[in-house]
Amino acid sequence: MKIIKPIIAIAFLAIALTSCTEEDNDPINLAENPLEEFNLLTTIEANAHKIEVYSDQDQYTVGYNELFYRIKDQNTDNYVSNAEIVQTPIMHMTSMMHSCPKSDIIKTEDLGVYRGFTVFQMPGNAEEHWELNLEYTLDGQTFTASERIAVKAPKDDKRRVASFMGADDKRYVVAMMPMAPAVKVNDFAAMVFTMENMMQFPAVPDHFLKIDPRMPGMGNHSSPNNEDLTYDAATGTYKGKLSLTMTGYWKINLQLIDPQGTVLKGEEVTEDNEASSLFFELEF
Rank of each mutant, 00 (worst) to 15 (best):
M91A: 12
M91S: 09
H92W: 06
H92K: 08
S95N: 13
S95C: 09
M97T: 13
M97V: 10
M97Q: 15
M97K: 14
H98Q: 08
S99H: 03
S99E: 02
S99G: 14
S99I: 03
C100F: 02
C100L: 03
P101C: 05
P101D: 01
K102N: 09
S103D: 02
S103I: 07
S103Q: 04
I105T: 09
I105K: 02
I105Q: 01
I105D: 00
I106P: 00
I106N: 02
K107Q: 07
K107F: 09
T108C: 11
E109W: 08
E109H: 14
E109T: 10
D110S: 13
L111V: 08
L111S: 12
G112K: 01
V113S: 02
V113H: 01
Y114S: 03
Y114R: 03
Y114H: 06
R115S: 08
R115L: 15
G116E: 01
G116L: 04
F117E: 00
F117I: 05
T118I: 07
V119H: 01
F120I: 04
F120T: 02
F120L: 08
M122K: 15
P123F: 09
A126S: 14
E128N: 13
E128L: 07
W130T: 02
W130Q: 05
W130M: 09
E131R: 14
E131P: 04
E131N: 13
E131W: 02
L132V: 05
L132K: 02
L134N: 03
L134P: 03
Y136R: 06
Y136I: 06
D139A: 14
D139M: 12
G140S: 10
Q141R: 11
T142K: 13
T144P: 11
T144E: 10
T144Q: 12
T144V: 05
A145T: 07
S146C: 08
R148N: 12
I149Y: 01
K152L: 11
K152S: 10
A153G: 08
A153S: 15
A153K: 10
P154V: 06
P154I: 05
D156P: 09
D156C: 08
D157T: 10
K158H: 10
R160Q: 11
V161E: 03
V161Y: 01
A162D: 05
A162E: 04
A162I: 04
S163R: 13
S163C: 11
S163Q: 12
M165F: 07
M165Y: 08
M165L: 12
M165A: 11
A167G: 12
D168A: 07
D169Y: 11
K170M: 12
K170V: 04
R171Q: 15
R171W: 05
R171G: 05
Y172K: 03
Y172D: 00
V173W: 00
V174P: 01
P178A: 10
M179W: 06
A180N: 13
A182K: 15
A182H: 12
V183M: 10
V183P: 03
K184V: 15
D187K: 14
D187E: 13
D187M: 07
F188E: 00
F188T: 03
A189W: 02
